[in-house]
Amino acid sequence: MKFPSFPRARGPAERGLTGVFGGWQTGIAATATGFLVGLLLLYWAGATALTGQWNEGAGSGLTVLVPRATETVPNGPETRLNAVWARLVVTPGVKGIEVLTADQDASLLRPWLGAGAKDIGMALPAVIAVRLDGGPFDAQGMAARLVEAAPGTIVEEHGAWSGQPGRLARDLRVYLNLLLAVLAVAAMVPVGAAAWRETMSAWPRVLLVSQLGATDGYAARSLAARIALFAGIGGLGGTICAIPVALGLAGLGTVLTARPLSIAPLALPPASWALLLLLPAALAAIGAGVAYVSVRWRLGRIA
C-alpha cells in the first residue's frame, strides 16, 4: 500500500497557537483598570501641575515699586523706571519682568480706593512684577542695586509669607504621588488575578500542547501573548474611555463653580500623556508576565 496522496484543498482557516487560549477575563479586568487608573492619572497629572503652579506662583515672585517713575535719574537722560528695568534684566535668577499697566494698578488699589482708583490724580509708583527662576536668589543685594539706580525704590519679597503655601504644595505633591502609586498597584491586582485565573482554565490546553511537543517556553509565550493582547486592548479601551469622562467631570466642575478651572484637563504636560499611553502597555505586561511565569512554574513542577 502506498502512502496516500490527495488533491490539496485551498484557503483553510489558519490561526496561531495563541488562538487556543482565552483572554477575555483579563481583557475585561484590564478595561476596568485602564479606565480607573487612566482617570486617576489624569487627575494626578492635573493636581500635580496645579501644585506646581502654586509653588512657582507663591514662592518665586517679588514686587518692585518705583516712585516718580517717569522722572529722569540725576546722572543721565533715562527715566527712573528704565534704570530699574535695566538693572533687573541683568540680575541673575530673574525669569520674567512685567510692568503693571494703569488698569492693573487700579485693580490692585480697588479694595482701598474703589472703582475710581484710576481717576484720583495721585502720583502712583510704577509697579514691576518680577518672577524668579526658583533657584537661590540674593534679594537684599538686588534691592541695594535698585535703590542705587533709583533712590526710593522699594522691593517687596513674597517669600516670607508665601513659604508656607509653597511647602504645602510640595507636601501635597508627595501625597499625590504616594496615593497614585498605591492606588495604581491596587488597581493592577485584578489584572494579575484575571491572568492567573485564565492560566488555570487554560491549563488542560497548555498540557496538551506540551504533550504534543511544545517547549515550556513556547507554551508559556503563546498564552502570555494571548493575554497580553487582550489586556492591552482592554487597557487601551479603558484608558481612552477615561479621557472624555475626565473632561466631562472638569466641565461639570466648571458649571458647579461657575468659573473656569485653574488647569484645563487637556492642557497637561506631555509627560502626563506619555504616562497615559504607557498604561495599556503596563497592563499587557502585567497580564503576560503573570501568565508566563505561572505556566513555566507549573510545567516545571511536572518534571
Binding site: 483553510p12 482557516a13 489558519e14 490561526r15 488562538g19 487556543v20 487560549f21 490546553r205 496538551l208 500542547v209 506540551s210 504533550q211 504534543l212 511537543g213 511544545a214 517547549t215 515550556d216 513556547y218
Partner: peptide, 24 residues
C-alpha cells in the same frame, strides 16, 4: 519536547483543541 514531537498519540487524553479548526 524534541522526543514528544516524534510521538503520535491517539487517545482520550489527547483531545482536539476546541478553539481551533480541524485544519489547525
Amino acid at each position: 519536547p524534541r522526543y514528544r514531537r516524534q510521538i503520535g498519540v491517539v487517545s482520550q487524553d489527547f483531545g482536539l483543541l476546541p478553539d481551533l479548526s480541524v485544519f489547525d
